[in-house]
Design a protein around this nucleic acid. Structure first.
Lengths: 287, 287
DNA sequence: AGGTTCCATATCGTGGGGTTATGGATCTCC
DNA sequence: GGAGATCCATAACCCCACGATATGGAACCT
């Protein structure tokens, strides 16, 4: 069913006059006449009785008019919805974050939610690598990732992060951390949970010329920190883990060029929603 | 919003493949590509991410898909409704009847209602003259009228009716009714309530050469009969009034060519509904 | 009878939408 | 790694649907 015909139908029904309806529809009267003939053929009933007094609805027309009005109303509702979606007043965002985003992501989401309550935001924890894959696949719109990002993604640098050594507060760490670490049994995050972070750490080991051994590992940063607090040994973690570290831990910044990196927001496609979210993330990062 | 574009949209969304969707829609792949480009321009959002694996919905597409489906569902509902209306399985009929239809109309409506429960039938009491006007104006679909009908109406003869003299059962009416009636005070139906009937009666008076006087009149046939029963005088009424006459009355058929006429069902436009109703009326009339 | 007011019809022109053919990018498979 | 396969986009062309103008025809009104 062609909605243009229905629009013409309801207009003629309202004005009871082909000429006036044609004018309101910004078309010519013969065009309207043809449209109504086509519509009547399509619905299989005569809809109007034409006469000197204009056009009046037949019982069939009277019966179909409410349905036509309802259908048109639905159609306009669709248009309005589409406009809201296009404008970004409504929609959904899937956000990812990993070790690198633990500090910024939740606050950015909170800020964005307060500004755009019509948008439903989901926030999921996953490694930078997985985030980039999903960004490219389209199942994620924004990721908080370790920079740089692979080709095909855009990004905005948000803040620098660095590796730190998590140790019990009481423990004293000597100046030459590299030597101190060499051969020392550490707690670490399961490499598959944070491939980027693990690579970063190995890069630092190479720079510092040390080879710690692994005593224990966990798939969860929180648990890693808890193990350190329980005396299982030190762990190399992002400085930003401070936010979730138990109070009896100290995070000692590690030296070396390989110890620092940028984290940023990354996305595959710009939409009004992604731009607004990135803006919110940038504000949070500045504060 | 063009429903054809939405149909294409949901098909592509379902099959996630332009080529397959084009085939299902019986069109070519380039045509579909253009349609989706047009739709995306209209809604203002990209709806699919195109790639080697075909086409996948973007979040915006995911959001608009349910609305599109609903709109299409409504559209199909409209089509189904229109088909039912066109087939006469659903609709409405306004029926008229007067003095002439008192015997047939209610039974015809009852029979029709039992056969076509989807159709709402309204039955209104009015004179043959008014019925014909409203038939021509379109506010009535079927009338039970005194024949003949004016130009512009079709009709089907149903049964013959005749004038009768309503008198108390005890009263004896002589052979030569004409002479007996001459100058006699009668009860009559208000002429404006039944112009056709009144003309018929005057025609009969002329044929019989009598000039009764009017003692009392009423706008309601039932009341006329009650007055006769109460001894106010005889009345000339249709024979079919027997059905509503009190038992203490007798209806004596009147002689003369002008005393009989046909009653029939009349209509201005044939529709499946009118044909079915007329058929039901004819069956009732035969019984 | 002429004028007016309706809707229907005739005729013509244009553009939207479809078709076929081809391009370009990516994945698959020897 | 190159040939083939797969998918969507683009190009070029064509045609019919749809609209505009002009005219017809019926019914009312002076």
């Amino acid at each position: 069913m062609d909605l243009r015909l229905l629009r013409a139908f309801v207009t003629v029904a309202r004005l009871r006059n082909f000429g006036a309806a044609a004018e309101e529809l910004s078309t010519s009267q013969p065009a309207l006449t043809k449209q109504m003939q086509v519509l009547e053929r399509k619905v299989g009933s005569v809809l109007f009785t034409r006469g000197r007094h204009g056009a009046r609805l037949t019982p069939a027309g009277e019966l179909l008019l409410p349905d036509a009005l309802q259908l048109l109303e639905r159609s306009e509702a669709f248009d309005r919805r589409a406009a809201r979606v296009a404008a970004g007043d409504e929609g959904s965002l899937a956000i990812g974050f990993g070790m690198s985003g633990i500090e910024i992501a939740p606050r950015a989401v909170a800020l964005f939610r307060s500004r755009w309550p019509g948008v439903s935001v989901s926030l999921d924890d996953m490694s930078s690598t997985v985030q980039c894959e999903r960004l490219l696949a389209g199942s994620l719109q924004i990721g908080f990732v370790r920079l740089p990002v692979p080709a095909g993604l855009e990004h905005l640098r948000l803040r620098r992060d660095r590796l730190a050594l998590a140790v019990p507060s009481a423990l004293d760490v000597p100046r030459d951390v590299g030597q101190w670490l060499d051969g020392r049994p550490l707690v670490r995050l399961t490499p598959s949970r944070g491939p980027g972070l693990t690579a970063q750490i190995h890069g630092l080991y190479a720079e510092l010329g040390c080879h710690p051994t692994v005593l224990q590992e966990s798939a969860d940063l929180q648990t890693v920190l808890a193990l350190v607090a329980a005396g299982a040994g030190p762990a190399v973690v992002p400085q930003s883990a401070e936010r979730i570290a138990p109070p009896e831990l100290r995070l000692v910044p590690l030296p070396g060029r390989a110890a620092t990196w940028w984290i940023g927001a990354a996305w595959a496609t710009r939409t009004p929603l992604t731009e607004r979210f990135v803006k919110a993330a940038a504000e949070v990062a500045r504060s």
